[in-house]
Design a binder for these strands. Structure first.
Lengths: 222, 222
DNA sequence: AAGAGTTTGTGAACGTGCGAACAAACTGAA
DNA sequence: TTCAGTTTGTTCGCACGTTCACAAACTCTT
């Protein structure tokens, strides 16, 4: 049914389509055309159709897509029909926000442990889950079959945490620490770099403005 | 000096190079080859050289790059030599983390205001900055010349907040709310979708594992 | 000064992604 | 049944991004 590999660019958009479909279901819309769904997802309709065609033929010509059915097919393709236990390491401000983020838990991702090196915070409850010692990582991974780890530590600790995760058997890492992680071939790392995003915006903003008044940096703010 | 437009893919990597250069400077390394810098940035050396060639000829053949000089050139190209006032809207867990994130303030991005619709939180200090009412957005944008806005509200409020930002004069938006924003042509939006990243990892993880034991979802955790 | 050794910057080949256009397939009316 | 209208799935051309390979340019030794 899905003989060929799905292009990376398509994979990156599947979660967006999924969100759009959920949003349509919330509005009690049971069926939609590629045009409607594409608008809801913020993409071109041709691109949407091509993306979906990589998963199979789940639409009906002349009619459109059944929202519920398509949602299930995408969920299954991504792997959201199964349960994904996740550990979060580094419970600072960001780790705290991630632990409370409903978008994780509502998609089959289950936070099984929050870990931090700071002993003084052990036992503290965050989002109903106690903070435990980082040393327990191996045991937790084995016990729950954790495959995905989230790093929300300072940059200085990230590589060491990542190494420990891989030693414990984790093969997919979501990294929020602003540093490049080096990992073996068979381990996937995705990086979310908050300040990079702002810098990219700044670049385009600088190009938009014909010229900003005054010399940069020296004028005081009254 | 930079007559042609810089490719989007290159722009997205410039912040990574900048971080790598800063890291080298921290280790008192004053000069480096494309190979070294590429390793530090986690990319191919040919790609790095081609990326840098879009900015100009800032290296010396047979020698390499002067770390400090290259860092300045990239900073200038991105626009980090000037000051970027930023407003953050939605001071929940995530907004709180963003306000405290040092990676913003250390790169020329200055948080000039934290805004939230919840009156009960007005006046509360977060990262030394008081939470103010969302209604003050227009005045703050005018006063400080804010060009970049960060949305960290729930998805349901994001579009309205975005519309208000644009009405106030903001032309670049960094969106953390899990929803697609519709904006005019001349406004830039970058989306950071935390749960999408996890879903992409899950897709690849599912493909890696030959097959997970047992039926998914029904087995209890002892 | 000349030549061996390095390293950058770039031209060319290759692969991937995108958008338009169209054929295939379905619905519904006559 | 047949025909007009609609919408999907796919083919094709083009632009963008990546990697290889090499010429240009620099340093250092002899």
């Amino acid at each position: 049914m899905s003989p060929t590999r799905i292009p990376e660019a398509t994979v990156a958009r599947l979660p967006v389509y999924l969100r759009a479909l959920n949003s349509l279901l919330d509005s009690d819309i049971r069926s939609c055309s590629s045009e409607e769904l594409a608008t809801a997802a913020g993409v071109n309709s041709a691109k949407l159709r091509k993306d979906l065609s990589h998963l199979g033929s789940y639409g009906t010509r002349g009619v459109g897509y059944d929202v519920e059915y398509l949602r299930y097919q995408i969920s299954r393709e991504i792997g959201l029909t199964q349960d994904w236990p996740v550990v979060i390491v580094g419970i600072g401000n960001l780790g705290h926000a991630l632990a409370n983020f409903s978008g994780f838990s509502s998609r089959g991702f289950r936070t099984v442990a929050l870990l931090d090196a700071d002993e003084s915070r052990h036992g503290e409850l965050v989002a109903g889950c106690p903070i435990r010692d980082f040393g327990e990582l191996g045991q937790i991974v084995r016990e729950h079959g954790v495959a995905i780890g989230v790093i929300a530590t300072p940059a200085s600790a990230a590589q060491a945490v990542c190494d420990q995760m891989i030693a414990a058997g984790i093969r997919s890492v979501l990294n929020f620490a602003p540093t490049v992680l080096s990992v073996p071939e068979d381990v996937d790392v995705r990086m979310v770099d908050l300040s990079s995003e702002l810098q990219i915006l700044a670049y385009h903003e600088q190009r938009k403005a014909p010229h900003v008044e005054g010399a940069p940096g020296t004028e005081g703010v009254a």
